[in-house]
C-alpha cells in the first residue's frame, strides 16, 4: 500500500532550545480545523498558556497546547538524519530493532 510506505518518525532530537517546548494549536471558528501555529518555550504549562494566549488569543476561540516531546511526528520528506524508518512491522532504529 503506497500510503504505508516511506514514512519516518521525526523529532527524536530535542527541541527545547530555551525551555520546554509546547506545540500550539488554535481554532477561530467552530467549523475551522485546528491549526498548528508553532511552539512556545516555557518552563511550565501555565507560562506556556500565558505566552500562547498573548501571541494568539486574539485569533482564537480554542487553543490547545501539547508538550513537543509527546508529539510523534511522521514524515516522508524530513531532513532529520536520525529519523527512524517505519515499515509495516513498526518503527525500527538504525540496528533494525523494533522501537
Amino acid at each position: 500500500m503506497a500510503e504505508q510506505s516511506n514514512w519516518s518518525r521525526v523529532g527524536e532530537q530535542p527541541r527545547d532550545a530555551v525551555d520546554r517546548e509546547w506545540e500550539v494549536f488554535i481554532r477561530n471558528e467552530s467549523r475551522d480545523p485546528l491549526q498548528h501555529v508553532g511552539s512556545v518555550s516555557a518552563p511550565t504549562i501555565e507560562t506556556a498558556r500565558t505566552q500562547a494566549t498573548t501571541l494568539f488569543g486574539r485569533y482564537a476561540t480554542d487553543l490547545w497546547l501539547c508538550p513537543a516531546t509527546d508529539v510523534r511526528r511522521y514524515s516522508r520528506t524530513t531532513i532529520d538524519e536520525r529519523a527512524v524508518s517505519v515499515d509495516s512491522e513498526g518503527e525500527r532504529d538504525e540496528r533494525g530493532h523494533s522501537a
Binding site: R15, G38, L55, D80
Partner: peptide
C-alpha cells in the same frame, strides 16, 4: 525572539514555514 518558534526545519523546509501566511501572527 527565541521563545516562540514558527516551526522546525526538520519537519518542514524554512521556505514553507516562512511563506505560510495562514499563521495569524506572521500575517499580522
Amino acid at each position: 525572539w527565541q521563545n516562540y518558534s514558527l516551526g522546525n526545519v526538520r519537519d518542514r523546509p524554512f521556505s514553507a514555514i516562512w511563506d505560510d501566511d495562514s499563521n495569524p501572527l506572521l500575517e499580522a
